[in-house]
């Protein structure tokens, strides 16, 4: 049986797809056969972040409609042979995504994979609801920013009431916080909500802080998940996240940022 993870946020642009690609790659690199599914029907992007956009032949909707088998639609990642991508459909209408269809695909994938990562679209529409419906774990991606925190809180409400686990009165979805685009300099100067501020409101199990990092854009430009950039802080932060999710104890990093003596004295900015 696979463990199903939904990467969700409510708000757009906070780093859901970046996170989905990174953690799926991280899990696969750790030796777990992992599938990552793009639920953003009509606006697929995960294929770009994973650099497989030119290898898309069939998509999620094709599989749901029975026009292709799962094995025909799954794309094996070029960097890791335990990672497979199921791309979203680019053109068809959103109603093609049905609860029954999604359930069948997940059930079939569960037989073969250890982890299934569902990359949720933004918003609280059908695609987002279906991405979380079957989940066992939720990675709530949040920016230290007022609208993102509010939307995350909203998603927590939906996770606890609109999922299959909620409907069946099973153990609720395990919710984790991923605080992304964190700028410790701005936190220090009082311009940005701190980890503690966000946790005072959301109080979730913290999987990790991903610092604001130029390497995220470079990684998307190249179509290589940022977790493979071992030199970058964001890459290391995602590696920590995967390790913690798998049960390893690792101290949290990137809360205080880099602090040289002169920076501490003069409070210099990057």
């Amino acid at each position: 049986m696979a463990r199903i993870i939904v990467v969700t946020s409510g708000k757009g642009g906070v780093g859901k797809t970046t996170t989905s690609a990174a953690i799926a790659m991280g899990l696969a690199k750790k030796g777990h056969k992992t599938a990552v599914i793009d639920f953003d029907v009509g606006l697929r992007n995960l294929d770009l972040i994973l650099g497989c956009e030119r290898r898309v032949v069939y998509d999620f909707i094709n599989v749901i409609n029975g026009e292709a088998s799962i094995n025909q639609a799954l794309i094996r990642d070029k960097n890791c042979n335990l990672l497979y991508i199921l791309p979203a459909s680019q053109t068809r209408d959103k109603d093609a995504l049905t609860q029954e269809g999604v359930g069948k695909v997940l059930e079939e994938l569960s037989k073969e994979f250890a982890y299934i990562v569902c990359d949720s679209p933004a918003g609280i529409e059908k695609g987002a609801n279906l991405a979380l419906y079957f989940a066992d774990d939720a990675f709530v991606v949040t920016n230290p920013e007022i609208s993102s925190v509010r939307d995350s809180d909203r998603m927590l409400g939906i996770l606890s009431s609109k999922s299959r686990r909620a409907e069946r009165n099973e153990e609720p979805i395990k919710e984790y916080l991923l605080l992304t685009r964190y700028d410790s300099d701005r936190v220090r100067s009082g311009e940005m909500l701190s980890l503690d501020d966000v946790q005072e409101i959301l109080s979730l199990d913290l999987l990790g802080i991903i610092p604001e990092s130029k390497s995220v854009l470079s990684a998307s430009n190249a179509g290589i998940p940022v977790i493979l950039d071992e030199k970058s802080e964001a890459g290391q932060a995602y590696t920590d996240v995967v390790a913690r999710y798998l049960g390893e104890k690792r101290p949290h990093r990137f809360i205080d940022g880099k602090q040289g003596f002169l920076r501490r004295l003069f409070g210099g900015r990057k």
């Binding site: 925190v149 311009e191 501020d197 005072e200 409101i201």
Partner: peptide
């Protein structure tokens, strides 16, 4: 400090 302003607004709203 605008961050504390944001936190106060969020606490009430949430």
């Amino acid at each position: 400090k605008t961050a504390s302003l944001a936190k106060e607004r969020l606490q009430i709203l949430v």
